[in-house]
Computed example of a mutant assay.
Amino acid sequence: MRRFGQSLAVVVSAGALATLTIQGPAAAAAAESMVSVVHGIPGQPVDVYVNGKKTLDNFQPATVAGPLSLAAGTYDVALTKPGEPASNPLLENKALAVPGGKNLSLVAHLDTAAKPALTAFVNDVSRTAPGKARLVVRHTAAAPAVDVRAGGKPVFPGLTNPKEAMADLPAGTVSADVTLAGTGTVVLGPKDLALAPGTETIVYAIGSADAKTLTLAAQTIKNLGAAPSSMPTGNGGLAADTGTGSWARPAAGGLLVALVGAFLLRRRVQRASR
């Protein structure tokens, strides 16, 4: 996995809501993407290989790794049992397409038949209107169609695996839950979600209904309320150092350079307008 573009947020644990907060890096090359990975397969730690190279060791369910900055291209991503080689994968995508200049979330999860699957989502990091927050819900659990409610009212009805739904809502705290489609039977939640202005909250339904491991995971992308000077990404401090050197966080020095550059540019514009 060369430098993976978004953050890899993997979450699978009963009853816990994990939150990944993504901050903006100092600068990102237009041809690269930021990739997050979500581990939504219950009870199975894995090693992660990218293009045959081990990138994550003993990657645990309900944990987050990343982000990685990946150049546009096609990657071979394999998940194995800890200690197993890439040639003996539990789950593999030999042609994971990473477009340039995108924000991606790669989710290892269960499909409707409770079989492991890898699904890549492109995150919408377009600007939000003043006072608005973006809410995205992704059905990545071994469960039937569901309705997602906010404040007791259906917001995203009839959502199926592996689909997503999205809406820009007034900022504030909402109580969200998940019910079986067309019924009032709650299968997840309720859970309070703080939707801050200029943020995107991505909620994942993960786990298995039959195995009673259903839970929610939340990923937050910040700094969408104003014109960004760089692609919103980050790691939220949830990924432990794997020792491989491939999952590096953006350097603080780069952020300082970007801030100084923005200040100097603003001064030039002010002088030119006088």
Rank of each mutant, 00 (worst) to 15 (best):
M1P: 14
M1W: 02
R2T: 14
A9T: 13
A9N: 11
A14C: 01
A16R: 10
G24I: 03
P25Q: 09
A27D: 13
A27E: 12
A29N: 14
M34G: 15
V35C: 11
V38N: 06
H39Q: 08
I41E: 00
P42S: 11
G43E: 11
V46T: 12
V48E: 05
V50N: 06
V50C: 13
V50R: 06
K53V: 15
K54P: 03
L56P: 05
D57K: 15
D57G: 14
Q60L: 12
Q60F: 01
P61C: 02
P61Y: 03
A62H: 09
T63P: 00
A65M: 08
L68A: 13
L70G: 15
A71N: 12
T74R: 08
P82F: 11
E84C: 01
E84P: 00
A86W: 04
P89W: 02
L91P: 08
L96R: 01
V98F: 05
P99H: 02
G101I: 06
G101S: 08
N103G: 08
N103A: 15
S105I: 13
V107P: 05
A108E: 10
H109M: 08
L110F: 10
D111G: 13
A117V: 09
L118E: 13
T119Y: 07
T119S: 13
S126W: 03
P130H: 04
K132C: 04
R134Y: 03
V136T: 09
R138H: 03
H139P: 01
T140I: 05
A142M: 06
V146G: 06
D147T: 06
G151R: 03
V155C: 09
F156V: 05
F156P: 05
P157Y: 09
N161M: 05
P162A: 14
E164Y: 05
E164G: 07
E164P: 00
P170K: 10
T173A: 12
T173C: 04
D177E: 11
D177Q: 07
V178E: 04
T179C: 12
L180A: 02
G182W: 09
G189Y: 10
G189V: 10
L193G: 02
A196G: 00
G198N: 07
G198S: 11
T199N: 12
T201G: 01
T201P: 00
V203S: 03
Y204C: 06
I206K: 03
S208C: 03
A209T: 01
D210Q: 15
T213F: 02
T215Y: 04
T215G: 15
T215E: 12
T215V: 07
L216V: 04
A217G: 15
A217F: 10
Q219F: 12
K222I: 10
N223W: 00
A226P: 00
A227Q: 05
P228T: 10
P228I: 08
P232L: 06
G234Y: 02
N235Q: 09
L238N: 06
T242M: 13
G243H: 07
T244Q: 02
G245Q: 04
W247N: 14
A248N: 11
P250A: 04
G253N: 14
G253M: 11
G253L: 12
G254L: 09
L256A: 14
V257Q: 12
A258N: 08
A258S: 14
A258T: 12
L259E: 08
V260D: 09
F263T: 07
L264K: 05
R268G: 00
V269Q: 08
V269N: 02
Q270A: 09
S273E: 03
